[in-house]
Amino acid sequence: MNIFRLFGDLSHLAAIAILLLKIWKTRSCAGVSGKTQLLFAVCFITRYIDLFLHFVSLYNTEKVMKLIYISASVFTCYLIFFKFKATYDGNHDSMRAEFLIVPAAGLACLINTKFDAIEILWTFSIYLEAVAILPQLFLISKTGEAETITSHYLFAQGSYRALYILNWIYRYHYESHVDTIAIVAGVVQTILYCDFFYLYITKVVKGQKIVLPA
């Protein structure tokens, strides 16, 4: 474990917590893409499938973190699609998730480290995570604005994988550890946030709200 990965995981936890708080406190999921949250839940379940297969002795933090990610993302989907369904902006959350899931699944079968079920699920989860934020970014471009709290969520969510890139550089340099698939997907994932990062740093940090040119 290194500082980059630690702060990456903390940033990821913060993102999940910010979104949960936003929905719970405002009792509304306006401006939140339910599809992105569904895709994240699928990512966690397919990536941490080992929790369900092998007996999970909850002694180490990694297992606990995996369970937190899965339960928090499923609970977020429950809030969006059930509890606060009336506030879900389905009209603007209109990016076709199939266009992300099918290519990720196909690519996972073609490019993977080992052609076996668990490994393909893991690879699928990595590829899907890289593009899972697209429905959320698409929704913001359609509505033309993002609530400040939602911007903080996106900043934390984007920072997590950006910090993981620093972690991979660190591990390559000091442990000569390389996980090419995760690195390539992580770079793509972070690049997708660049536009948002620019808006966040030039606007939200100064207390302005993100309003895209309509």
Binding site: R5, D9, H12, E62, M65, K66, Y69, T113, K114, D116, I118, E119, W122, Y164, N167, D179, A182
Partner: peptide, 10 residues
């Protein structure tokens, strides 16, 4: 199982 690829990150 030993033959599984070890992904030690979340």
């Amino acid at each position: 199982p030993a033959d599984e690829v070890d992904h030690d990150e979340l």
